[in-house]
C-alpha cells in the first residue's frame, strides 16, 4: 500500500458517498444516469467474487463490502425509492453497445480462462466505460449540478491516482498488471475533457456545469 493507492481508494469512496448522500438527502436522482450506476454495481459484483475464495486483508474485505453495499443502495434509491425523479428520457445510452464488446473482449484477452478470472477481467474492462451513460446524459441535457460534478471529479481522480500507484509499484515491486493498467489509462482519458470543464467552470464558482 502506497500513498497513491490509499488516496485513490479514499477518492473512490468519497465519490460513491457523495452520490449516495446527494440522492438520499435531496430525495431526487435528477441528472443521474441510473444506467451507469447499474453498470458500477455489476462491476463490483463481478470483481469481488474473490471475497468468497481468498482473503487478502481486513482493509481489502471491508472496502469491497462497502463498495458493493453502497452501489446497490444507490441503484435502489434511483430505481425504487426515488424512481419518480429518475430522468429516464435523458438516460438513453445503449448499454448493450458497452456490454457486448466488453464481454467478448474479456473472453479473448484475460490472464486465465476460468469463470472467476474472466469475470474479473470483464469488471476491469466494464469499469473503464461504465461512466459513459452518465457523461452522455450530461452532454444531452447540457448541464450538471455542481454536486454531480464533484462526484465525477473524485471518481475520475481515483483511477488517475491508481495510475500513479501502478508506476510506483512497477518501480518498487516490479508489479505490472497489463489488463488493469491499459483499462485504467482508457478510463482516465474519458475524464480528461470533464476535468478541464470542472477546473475552468465549477471551481471558478459556477453553481452548475453548463456546456458551451
Amino acid at each position: 500500500m502506497n500513498v497513491f493507492r490509499l488516496l485513490g481508494d479514499v477518492s473512490h469512496l468519497v465519490a460513491i458517498i457523495i452520490l449516495f448522500l446527494k440522492i438520499f438527502r435531496s430525495k431526487s436522482c435528477a441528472g443521474i444516469s441510473g444506467k451507469s450506476q447499474v453498470l458500477f454495481a455489476l462491476v463490483f459484483t463481478t470483481r469481488y467474487l474473490d471475497l468468497f475464495t481468498s482473503f487478502i486483508s481486513i482493509y481489502n474485505t471491508v472496502m469491497k463490502v462497502v463498495f458493493l453495499v453502497l452501489s446497490y443502495a444507490t441503484v435502489y434509491l434511483i430505481y425504487l425509492r426515488f424512481r419518480s425523479s429518475y430522468d429516464s428520457e435523458s438516460d438513453t445510452f445503449r448499454v448493450e453497445f458497452l456490454l457486448v464488446p466488453v464481454a467478448g473482449l474479456s473472453f479473448l484477452e484475460n490472464y486465465d480462462f476460468t469463470p472467476i478470472e474472466i469475470l474479473w477481467t470483464f469488471s476491469i474492462y466494464l469499469e473503464s466505460v461504465a461512466i459513459l451513460p452518465q457523461l452522455f446524459m450530461i452532454t444531452k441535457t447540457g448541464e450538471a449540478e455542481s454536486i454531480t460534478t464533484h462526484y465525477l471529479f473524485f471518481l475520475g481522480l481515483y483511477r488517475a491516482l491508481y495510475l500513479a500507484n501502478w508506476v510506483w509499484r512497477y518501480h518498487t515491486e516490479g508489479f505490472f498488471d497489463q489488463i488493469a493498467v491499459v483499462s485504467g489509462v482508457v478510463q482516465t482519458i474519458f475524464y480528461c475533457d470533464f476535468f478541464y470543464l470542472y477546473v475552468t467552470k465549477v471551481l471558478k464558482g459556477n453553481s452548475k456545469l453548463t456546456l458551451p
Binding site: R5, D9, H12, D50, S54, I56, S57, N60, M63, K64, F67, Y111, D112, T114, E117, W120, I124, Y162, N165, F175, D177, I179, A180
Partner: peptide, 10 residues
C-alpha cells in the same frame, strides 16, 4: 502467476 495480478487492489 499472472492470474493473481491486481487482486490485492480494489
Amino acid at each position: 502467476s499472472d492470474s493473481q495480478n491486481g487482486k490485492d487492489e480494489l
